[in-house]
Design a protein around this nucleic acid. Structure first.
Lengths: 202, 202
DNA sequence: GGACTGACAGATTTCAATATCTGTCAGCAG
DNA sequence: CTGCTGACAGATATTGAAATCTGTCAGTCC
């Protein structure tokens, strides 16, 4: 035999098979064939096909999260940082949707099919948002009595520009305009926002 | 023969057939059968199956628009009116999605399949939003230099609570909380919002 | 003994034949 | 003459038999 079969090699091969055949056609047998082993060997490293797919998905998401890590070192206001972060997220999503629609669709299917993965993804990004908003609260640029809740609200309010269900709208020529309008509205709200914890509003 | 076949009767029968069989199974033959005529007769009133479906859809949407017509007569602030209108829209959507999921899905398919119908629907509702915001600007409760653009931004920011792509999230127990947070953020933004017409922001 | 194979059962997918539907139109009935 | 019918051609949908896939495991190889 040549070399030991590693989980890493299986993940890489699975990624390649998913790219080539798409999520609907990719089979465990294909992965094994690409590695030159029997498909029984793959089951020695991953208990089910679903677990294998989920491992690939989590790996990909972690790379996305790393790429979105906000940079606090520059001399930007919180509003500028927030706008830049949201714009970067939007640009990345838009680009991958326009440039590689099939790969985008593939990972969309993968993310959706695993319970808990979408939550994992959103919670991570909302956490990054919260850190930016928190910085704004410290400099008294933003006002809020619940940073996490507000971060979630900003995420929800900008759903149209990052939720894959809206991907088809990202090709609209006026989409950047709509993005600017929503982000400006949200930032204006952050400057004077007091979200009630249960009910009531001024 | 009994009575003349009218377009009205065909529309009513089509609605019934769509309710009973769903959008995938409903056929022109079914409609004709329900009316006790040959399917050729239906084509005397509607040129294609698509035109027939679109007529039913437009009829249904007009009823929805009427139900959402904002009431300006009460002694409410613009913020209260805006919140109430958004809540009503959310409640109506949520209710029809929870109470009659099949009918909701049926009209969702119908709305999507006709080019132009979604735009017709959204433009109408954003128009209602614009009237509420416009009232707020007149009382100096809200600030904006472009009512229509701002109305669209409010619509976009609340997408999660009316766009059917998010319907599955409406069953979440915390959804009302998320709604309140977003609406409060948006209303805070409206009080101090100045959306740039092309680029740049303070 | 630990890693891999290959045959297997049950579940899922594919594919081609069969049936149904859409849209048209010549002809019939009042 | 006007409104409806029913047969028709091409397009679409349904079905069930055959092929493939998933997950297991007794057995092989070093």
């Amino acid at each position: 035999m040549a070399e030991a079969l590693t989980s890493e090699a299986i993940l890489a091969a699975t990624e390649e098979v998913l790219r080539r055949y798409g999520p609907a056609k990719a089979t465990v047998v294909d992965v094994a064939k690409a590695l030159g082993v029997s498909h029984g060997s793959v089951y020695r490293h991953f208990p089910t096909k679903a677990a294998l797919r989920e491992a690939v998905t989590r790996r990909w998401l972690d790379a996305q999260h790393l790429a979105m890590e906000p940079a606090f070192d520059q001399g930007l206001t919180a509003a500028e940082m927030l706008r830049a972060w949201l714009q970067k997220l939007f640009d990345r999503k838009k680009l991958s949707h326009v440039d590689e629609p099939e790969l985008f669709a593939t990972y969309l299917v993968l993310v959706r099919e695993s319970r808990g993965i979408p939550e994992y993804h959103v919670e991570h990004l909302v956490g990054q948002l919260a850190r930016i908003i928190s910085a704004g609260v410290e400099t008294q640029e933003f006002v809020t009595d619940d940073v996490d809740r507000t971060a979630q609200a900003v995420w929800d309010a900008t759903d149209r520009f990052h939720h894959p269900a809206h991907a088809q709208e990202w090709g609209d020529p006026h989409i950047q305009d709509a993005f600017d309008a929503v982000v400006s509205l949200v930032i204006a709200g952050l400057r004077y926002n007091r979200i009630p914890s249960a009910a009531g509003d001024a």
